[in-house]
């Protein structure tokens, strides 16, 4: 139990980072298909979809790598948190407008993931992000008071 408590922060951080790296690589592999997924939300104009499809996966990739490496975790996690909020808003708007679309979160043009499933998944990722940020904040407080590095969550 104490072992789990000891490793949980790193486990959550690395899992979250790996998920984002995986998602990013799938999108980088097929930017045109991802642009199609973005356009299907009918939020962005024509070129906006392509610009998002070009830039967003690389932001995801970068933040994922930072989280996995444990370097600049707070910035990486904050960006991932904001991205997740944006995804949740976009998915919710798709649900409200009754759009029957694939979320485009991971593999493009594969098996369809409904907005509801994707929404639930994003909420989970958001919770993981929040946990990572909380651990970071505690670690900071710990180092400020000179309690030594990285007192694990307790």
């Amino acid at each position: 139990m104490s072992q789990l408590k000891h490793y949980l922060p790193a486990l959550v951080r690395i899992t979250l980072g790996a998920v984002f790296i995986y998602a990013a690589l799938l999108k980088i592999a097929d930017p045109v298909a991802f642009a199609g997924s973005v356009a299907a939300y009918r939020i962005l104009p024509y070129f906006g979809s392509y610009l998002t499809a070009a830039a967003l996966p690389f932001v995801e990739l970068c933040c994922g790598i930072l989280l996995v490496l444990g370097y600049r975790v707070r910035s990486g996690a904050l960006i991932i948190g904001v991205l997740n909020l944006v995804f949740i808003v976009a998915l919710a708007s798709a649900i409200v407008r009754g759009l029957d679309i694939d979320c485009g979160c991971f593999k493009q043009g594969g098996e369809k993931t409904t907005p509801w499933t994707a929404l639930a998944r994003d909420v989970l990722f958001l919770a993981m992000t929040w946990f990572v940020l909380k651990v970071e904040a505690r670690r900071d407080r710990g180092s400020e008071t000179g309690a030594g590095p990285a007192a694990p969550a307790g």
Binding site: I28, P31, V32, A35, G36, V38, A39, A40, R42, Y46, F47, S49, Y50, L51, A53, A54, A55, L56, P57, F58, V59, L61, C62, C63, L66, R72, S75, G76, I79
Partner: peptide, 29 residues
Amino acid sequence: IVAISASVGIAWNRTLLTSAWRGEVARPA
């Protein structure tokens, strides 16, 4: 972080973006 990675992404996809800007790519919709 956002600026750097977004720039890398745009540079990576510059060919696609250029043709999209000129309207040569099929509308994704």
